[in-house]
Amino acid sequence: MINISPPLVLDMNFKVMTVRIRNLFLMGILLDFTSDIWMLPVPSRVFMDSLNMRHVLRWTPLKDSCNTTVLYSVQYQGDFERSNNGPWLNPPECQQIPHTHCDLTFDLASNSDYIIQVRAQCRSQLSAWTGLQFNRKDTTLLPPEMKVTMTGDVLQVSINKPLTTTARVMVWRKEDELKPDVRLMSDEQEVLHVQGLQEEVEYCVKAQVVLHTGKSSEFTAPRCVFITGPCAPPWKKPITVAVTVIAMLVLLAGLCWFIVHCRPHSCAAIFIKKQLQLPSSLVWMNPIQVHVITPSEDTVTVSMLGTGSRTGSETSGLQGRSYV
C-alpha cells in the first residue's frame, strides 16, 4: 500500500484548480471575442413553408432596435456540395433583402438533403448563421385543380399539377364506383382524353397528384358527367332546350297580340292585294279612226289619238290613194 503525504495531495489539488481557472478565463475571452463579432441576435423561428412543391424559407424579423432597415441573406448546401467540400451557394434573389422570406423553389432542384441558413445584418453588424435541414420530398401536397368537360362521347380532364408531379385519374360509371378505370398523366401532360365511353350513361371522375417518391395528395371531389354521345339529338342539351322554349313563348305571345289587335278591315288590307293598274302613259285616250276612201271622194278624214282631223286642201294630195 502506497502512502501519500498531505503536502503532495495539496499540491495536486492546487494544480487542478489552476487548470480549471485558466480554462474558465480562456472561455470568457472567447465568449467576449465572439460577442464582438456577432453583435446581432440570429433570426428566430426559421422554417420551410413547402406546399405543392413550392418551397419558401420564412423567419421572424429581429426585435432589436436598428437605426436602419435590417437586411437578411440566405445560403444553402446540398449533399453534392457537402460531400465534395464545395462552397455554400448564395441565391441572388435572397441576398441582403428587407423581407423575411426567400423562395427557393427553383434552387432546390433535387431530392437531396439541403442545409439552409439565414443571417441578419444591420449596417456593419452581423448575426450568426442559423438554419435547418430540408428535403423537397417532404412537401405537403393538396388535391389538384380539376376541370371535366364533354365533347361527344369523349371526356376531357384538365388538371393543374405542381412541378415534377404526375396525376392519377380514376373514371367509373356512377353506379359502379368499385371498378374504376385508372389513368396516369405525366409531368408535361395537362389534358387527358378518355374515349370509348358508353352513351346514355353517367360517368364520374376524381384525381390526385403523386410524387416520384410515391407520396400523394388526397383525391379531388368526384365530378360526374352524363354522356350523350356524338349523335345525340340536340334537344337533350340544356342550352338548346332553353333557347327553344324561349323562342316558342315569344312566337306565341306575338300571335296572341296579333289576334287581339288586328281588326277585319286592317287585316284585309294586309292579306288582300290591290289590283294592278297600268300607268296613264300606256293608256290610249282616243281611238284611231281610219276611213276607207275611194277615188271619187274629194276629202279624206284621218282621226288619231289627240290629233283632231284634217280636211280640204290639206288632204288633197291623198286623192287616188286608198287606206285600209
Rank of each mutant, 00 (worst) to 15 (best):
F106E: 14
D107F: 13
L108E: 03
A109N: 14
S110A: 11
S112E: 15
Y114A: 07
I115L: 11
I115H: 12
I116D: 02
Q117V: 11
V118G: 08
A120M: 05
Q121P: 12
Q121R: 15
Q121V: 13
C122W: 04
Q125W: 14
S127C: 05
S127D: 02
A128C: 09
W129G: 08
T130W: 09
G131D: 02
Q133P: 05
F134K: 01
N135T: 06
N135E: 02
R136D: 03
D138F: 07
T140Q: 08
T140W: 05
P144H: 07
M146H: 08
M146I: 14
V148P: 03
T149M: 09
M150K: 13
T151G: 07
G152K: 05
L155V: 11
V157E: 00
S158W: 01
K161N: 07
K161Y: 03
P162H: 07
P162K: 04
L163K: 10
T164Q: 13
T166A: 07
A167C: 08
A167Y: 02
A167W: 02
R168P: 00
V169Y: 00
M170D: 09
M170Q: 13
V171G: 03
W172R: 10
R173A: 15
D176F: 13
E177C: 13
E177Y: 15
L178I: 14
K179R: 15
K179N: 15
P180H: 07
V182M: 02
L184N: 11
M185L: 09
S186K: 02
S186L: 06
D187E: 13
D187N: 09
D187T: 15
Q189G: 04
E190Y: 03
V191Q: 08
V191S: 07
L192E: 03
L192W: 02
H193N: 14
V194W: 07
V194Q: 10
Q195A: 15
G196I: 14
Q198S: 15
Q198M: 11
E200P: 07
E202A: 05
Y203M: 03
C204L: 12
C204V: 09
K206L: 05
A207E: 00
A207W: 00
Q208D: 09
Q208G: 06
Q208R: 12
V209Q: 04
V209K: 01
L211K: 06
L211V: 08
T213S: 11
G214H: 04
G214T: 07
S216Q: 08
S216D: 08
S217V: 03
S217M: 03
E218P: 05
E218G: 14
A221E: 14
A221K: 12
A221Q: 13
